[in-house]
Measured scan of single mutants.
Amino acid sequence: NITAAIYDEIQQEMKRAKVSQALFAKVAANKSQGWLCELLRWKENPSPENRTLWENLCTIRRFLNLPQHERDVIY
């Protein structure tokens, strides 16, 4: 289940792992930094009809659900 909290989790994970938006986007969703920036802007007004947005957030959720040491190896 995806909630608005995922946006904060993304920010916290980037700080914790000391990774850039570009690197996080690449490893978590195989996307660009610009894409992640755009995604983070949706926090203010996520559209329930935007299926692509929710699919991408689900992809990021799966990455964030990995154990921390696995995420660190991927970075």
Rank of each mutant, 00 (worst) to 15 (best):
N1L: 03
I2H: 14
T3K: 14
A5S: 15
A5M: 12
A5Q: 15
I6R: 03
I6L: 11
I6F: 03
I6C: 08
Y7A: 12
Y7G: 01
Y7L: 08
E9Y: 05
E9K: 14
E9D: 11
E9W: 14
E9L: 12
I10M: 13
I10D: 00
I10L: 11
I10T: 03
Q11W: 06
Q11K: 03
Q11N: 15
Q11L: 06
Q11G: 06
Q12N: 06
Q12I: 07
E13G: 00
K15G: 13
K15I: 06
K15C: 11
K15L: 13
R16P: 00
R16H: 15
A17E: 03
A17S: 12
A17G: 12
K18L: 10
V19K: 02
V19Q: 02
S20M: 08
S20D: 02
Q21K: 09
Q21T: 09
A22D: 04
A22E: 04
A22W: 10
A22M: 10
A22Y: 15
L23I: 02
L23Y: 13
F24A: 01
A25M: 04
A25K: 00
A25G: 10
A25D: 03
V27Y: 15
V27R: 13
V27K: 09
V27F: 12
A28D: 02
A29V: 04
A29W: 04
A29S: 09
N30A: 04
N30P: 02
N30S: 12
S32T: 14
Q33P: 10
Q33T: 13
G34Y: 03
G34M: 14
G34T: 12
G34Q: 12
W35M: 10
W35S: 10
W35R: 08
L36G: 02
L36C: 14
L36T: 04
L36D: 01
C37V: 09
C37Y: 07
C37T: 13
C37L: 14
C37R: 12
L39H: 10
L39A: 13
L39D: 06
R41L: 09
R41G: 11
R41S: 12
W42N: 15
W42E: 12
K43P: 07
K43V: 06
E44D: 11
E44Y: 12
E44M: 11
N45W: 13
P46Y: 15
P46V: 15
S47K: 12
S47F: 15
S47A: 07
S47M: 05
P48A: 11
E49L: 11
E49M: 05
N50L: 07
N50H: 14
R51S: 12
R51V: 13
R51G: 07
T52D: 02
T52G: 11
T52H: 15
T52W: 09
T52L: 10
T52Q: 08
T52R: 11
L53F: 08
L53E: 09
W54Q: 06
W54K: 06
E55A: 07
E55Y: 02
N56K: 11
N56G: 15
L57M: 09
L57Y: 01
C58M: 04
T59Q: 12
T59E: 14
T59N: 02
T59C: 06
I60W: 01
I60K: 01
R61V: 14
R61W: 11
R61M: 10
R61N: 09
R62P: 01
R62G: 07
F63V: 04
L64M: 08
N65A: 08
N65L: 07
N65Q: 08
Q68W: 07
Q68G: 11
Q68K: 08
Q68Y: 06
E70Y: 05
R71Y: 00
R71L: 07
R71W: 00
D72Y: 09
D72G: 12
D72Q: 07
D72R: 05
V73W: 09
V73S: 14
V73R: 13
I74R: 08
I74F: 01
